[in-house]
Nucleic acid binder design. Structure first.
Lengths: 226, 226
DNA sequence: GGTGCATTTACAACAAATTTACAAGTTCAC
DNA sequence: GTGAACTTGTAAATTTGTTGTAAATGCACC
């Protein structure tokens, strides 16, 4: 899955750092801004996929940042970070075009859940594109390109590749793959998986003989590395 | 890896049964509840690792179940099952602390993918990693690293090492090891164990001649020290 | 303590068995 | 018919059990 850029606009350096580390661990790309106007600039220039905005900011307030962005037709989803004593005004949030809010201090699980939810519902077409190596998968168009040239894949190949990408870095047994990709009613031979893997490698590996993405785990199954 | 318990709270008995069979097949342990209040009780008493909650439930609604659980500081991840006509209100989902949602009718693949994704997110990734000395075993990736460099192991070596780690500090006879790691039917020579121990030592002991982790108990068997 | 002897274990090399890669063939559905 | 998908034969790669031998250990006895 393509890495999402998330811009944190908050004057609390410690919070920015904590959240950044968290986001990085979850495969997001954190960006930071310490005050409203740099936040506004970076939101325009770096084109993040999501904004985390503190309402109380020195100088240009978070409210102002959001309003200005929306006035500039920036539709990037926004999650507002508000202090508990602020008594969040939901009408205000709507006005400034926020998508959600989290009350500080917040738990990491909560923040991540909200980030994921917002990203999912924001119909950012980038969210529907995943990459690995020189391969790009557009799930909306159901098209796979390699070096910007379309590569034709059969439905089975497409499903298998997507399953690999959705479960990257995990060892996947042939049985698990069959269950997940083919469904549990229908049971082709486990060697069928091998056959499809061969074809995927031929289409997407630089050197199919030395695969770098679809690895075999001898005696167990396969493992996909982006 | 401990089996994940998944509690299905839904009034549709057929759906519960179908999903249960599916989950069992995938090595999960399904639990069921037909209405909101039993669901709530079981969520507390059985301590499942994941909840599948239908929003429309007789009596106590799914929404209410989630809210009450969160109010009771239950952080078990929740996947909401919603009927297509419900027009999922995503803000509501966030409010009740849901981690994801699936629209009925759903495909088995989709449901499983989401279950796995949520479990992966909520589980402490460190929990899947064990260590001894400078060696790190990641059971999810099925990869062993030493000083952060991957060390390739064969299935037999991997199984044997894991058995040692799971039974550390105990004296293990060769017969016990054969039974546990190889199984009851198949009986290779007891010296086979020695051969594999030699290979493990060569890969993971600082000085294979003076092993500090896989110790031999002369005349009896082996003992593993982390 | 030291010595000699019987066991037990370590290790390397090898052959057998298993597993995977790949290609070609067959079946099935549209 | 055409293309996709499953099956299957076979070669190649990998793993694994076995075994011969050297080294280590335990032990009885001096």
């Amino acid at each position: 899955m393509a890495q999402h850029k998330i811009l944190i606009i908050d004057d609390d350096a410690e919070l920015r750092e904590t959240v950044s580390i968290l986001l990085e661990r979850e495969q997001f790309q954190p960006l930071q801004a310490a005050d409203g106007s740099t936040g506004f600039d970076k939101a325009l220039s770096l084109k993040p996929n999501l904004l985390l905005v503190d309402l109380r900011l020195p100088g240009m307030s978070g409210i102002e940042v959001c309003k200005q962005l929306r006035a500039n037709r920036v539709t990037t989803p926004i999650i507002v970070l508000s202090a508990i004593e602020d008594e969040v005004d939901k009408v205000l949030l709507l006005e400034i075009g926020a998508d959600d809010y989290v009350v500080k201090p917040f738990g990491t699980r909560e923040l991540l859940a909200r980030i994921r939810a917002v990203l999912r519902r924001s119909s950012d077409p980038e969210a529907l594109v995943s990459r690995f190596g020189d391969v790009e998968v557009n799930t909306e168009r159901r098209i796979i390109t390699r070096n910007n040239k379309e590569v034709k894949v059969t439905p089975a190949e497409y499903n298998l590749l997507l399953f690999f990408m959705q479960n990257s870095d995990r060892v996947l047994t042939r049985d698990l793959i069959l269950n997940s990709v083919w469904g549990y009613e229908f049971y082709p031979n486990t060697r069928t998986v091998d056959a499809h893997v061969v074809r995927l490698r031929q289409k997407f590996e630089q050197d199919p003989v030395i695969p770098r993405h679809i690895l075999t785990v001898h005696g167990v199954g396969y493992r996909f590395l982006p």
